[in-house]
Design a binder for these strands. Structure first.
Lengths: 180, 180
DNA sequence: ATTTTTACTTACCGGTTGGTAAATTCTAAT
DNA sequence: ATTAGAATTTACCAACCGGTAAGTAAAAAT
């Protein structure tokens, strides 16, 4: 693994534990086993490190969610596979999930993170498209707002100490959007 | 308004905009129009300021949500009144809502905030009780996990720029938990 | 009028912050 | 072997961080 990658992973781990403002560049350096100045050789600023962590996190999440269901013909299996994959990701890829979860509110409201906000909204739009597709198959209630459902799904996917609670949350959402 | 109150409100406003780690004690002082040392006359530490902001925020939210519905006999009106009051609070008391929303993930996962985590879980329990009550009135699906529903409701109550989206999110949740 | 208590300010502390310039070491091509 | 460029370290900066000690002004109690 090359140096830039080590720095990026150390940053991701640190941000997931303490959030962006709770982590110093020096701490990232120590976790990566490099000197702080070397971080500024690979990245122009702390903000840009976070931007790369954020983009990568969402891309990995998208890949995990959409790659496996892309060849599924049955919409019902597709949607359920999607939600199952989401639970699986939050459970087994805690670092990435926590990065998103810890900084989502700041990303969505602070002006300095406009780019990251748009990246997150793009992710939400993909979920919204999946919901919208369900209307054509008569599987999703017609009056559902796809973007609202996407927000609800993504916003409720937070890791919890008690196991099984995520499945129960999802079952509520499924009953809320799925016919029958 | 006395000085301690001014400090507390300045802190609340600042935390809601930038989160706990994004705000310095000096910034709180400047917003409150006092010197930093005076803050340490009224509060022992920055952590304790936030604890007071957090406790107050949840108490005000609880008051707003439960006070108005306490005399409602019909469970259906009660639950709908509760959700309507929640939307109203998030829409009109943005400062408090954003404090909770921005720091929820950190409070729930970082060891230093054990007290605040318990305070938030107490709040969730009250919502869970309301859900559980609905089962006795045959209004809520029996297989619903009240704590999961409480998490879903509270976690989805985030302010959005687009108006009306909160109502749509809640309508999904209602269909997910309410019979008929 | 004097003392005591409360409210508030000034001035500072050691440590950390994000970030930079310059020097050094390593690597690969010539 | 020399050189050039990439990778990494050392040393530093001004600004800021949370927090404190000592003093002053105002108000309340005696």
């Amino acid at each position: 693994m090359d140096t830039k990658e080590r720095i990026l992973r150390a940053a991701m781990q640190a941000f997931s534990e303490k959030g962006f403002n709770g982590v110093s560049v020096d701490e990232i350096a120590k976790r990566a086993g490099v000197k702080k100045a070397l971080i500024y050789y690979y990245f122009p600023s702390k903000d840009k490190i976070f931007k790369e962590v954020w983009d990568r996190s969402l891309s990995e999440l998208e890949k995990h969610l959409f790659d496996e269901i892309e060849n599924e013909k049955s919409y019902m299996k597709k949607l359920k596979g999607f939600l199952k994959a989401y639970i699986d990701f939050v459970t087994n890829r805690k670092v990435i999930s926590e990065v998103i979860n810890k900084e989502r509110a700041s990303v969505m409201s602070e002006d300095k993170w406009t780019d990251l906000k748009e990246r997150y909204e793009g992710f939400l739009s993909k979920i919204a498209s999946l919901i919208d597709e369900g209307k054509r198959y008569n599987a999703i209630y017609e009056d559902i707002d796809p973007m609202a459902a996407a927000n609800l799904i993504s916003g409720s996917m937070v890791h919890s100490e008690k196991p099984g609670i995520l499945e129960k949350v999802i079952s509520v959402i499924m009953r809320g959007i799925l016919k029958g």
